[in-house]
Simulated assay, not measured.
Amino acid sequence: MPQANLDALKFLLERRSVSHKTLSFPVPDRAGIDAILTAGARVPDHKMLEPFRFIVLGDAALNRLGGVVQIYGDQIGQDADKTAKAVFNFTNAPLCIAVVASLKPTDMIPEVEQTLAVGACCLSVLNAALASGWGANWITGWTAFETAFLQDHMGLSADEYVAGFIFIGTAKTEPTDRKRPELDAITTWVTE
């Protein structure tokens, strides 16, 4: 019989993202962030291509990006409400780990497999932050895929995008649980 890690299983069964709207200081220190990133990078990654990389954005960088997002959104004619939401996302939370999808050109590993590894990396970063006791939330939004913005203001290449902005901080309020999927509605059992 396998040895169960009951603490890990309990965490996974009860994990709950914390709204980025409720995050404030303090935030993890450098050692805490390194532990979160180490866990984040420890995902299935066929042929070890590392189709992801991290950008750690501190409070000053997030505030700078919030100002730039306002200007950029106005320049491209982005919906004013979407721009305001993006500005808030950047300026509200005190720390963010941007998980950058940096897929590698290869005939050996399909792009979709690399993309799935990047998604797994986002979830691992989120779960590591939550398991460390911090509040955390995975957000994307239009800025995650806006190539010119990402190149000019976050140093991404033309073929990269942000798979997830993982906002991290101290939760001001305890999150409530939400409706979860009905397993019977999404599960098919094949026994023969």
Rank of each mutant, 00 (worst) to 15 (best):
M1I: 05
Q3D: 12
Q3N: 13
L6C: 02
A8G: 11
K10C: 08
F11C: 05
F11A: 03
L12Q: 10
E14D: 13
R15F: 08
S17M: 14
V18Q: 07
K21M: 12
K21C: 05
K21D: 12
T22D: 14
L23P: 08
F25W: 06
P26E: 06
V27L: 08
V27Y: 07
V27E: 04
P28H: 05
R30E: 15
D34M: 11
D34L: 14
T38L: 11
T38D: 10
A39Y: 02
A39V: 09
G40A: 09
A41Q: 08
A41M: 10
R42W: 07
R42E: 05
D45F: 07
K47T: 08
F52P: 04
F52S: 10
R53E: 11
F54A: 08
I55Q: 13
D59K: 13
A60T: 13
L62F: 01
R64S: 12
G66N: 13
G67P: 07
G67D: 13
V68M: 12
I76F: 01
I76A: 07
G77W: 04
A84H: 07
A86R: 04
A86M: 14
A86Y: 03
A86V: 02
T91G: 11
T91K: 14
N92W: 01
L95G: 07
C96A: 12
I97K: 02
A98T: 07
A98Y: 06
A101Y: 05
A101W: 02
S102N: 14
P105E: 15
T106F: 10
T106Q: 06
I109T: 15
P110H: 04
E111N: 02
Q114D: 01
L116Q: 06
L116H: 05
L116S: 02
V118P: 03
G119Q: 09
C122V: 15
C122P: 12
L123P: 00
L123K: 12
S124E: 06
S124G: 07
V125N: 03
A128D: 08
A131P: 09
A131L: 10
G133C: 04
A136V: 05
I139Q: 15
G141L: 05
D152I: 00
M154A: 10
M154P: 11
G155D: 04
Y161C: 12
F165C: 01
F165R: 06
I166T: 08
I166C: 10
I168V: 13
G169T: 04
T170E: 11
T170H: 02
T170D: 04
K172D: 15
T173S: 14
E174P: 00
P175V: 03
D177K: 12
E182Y: 01
L183F: 09
D184V: 10
D184F: 00
A185Y: 01
I186L: 14
I186E: 10
T187F: 05
T188W: 04
W189H: 14
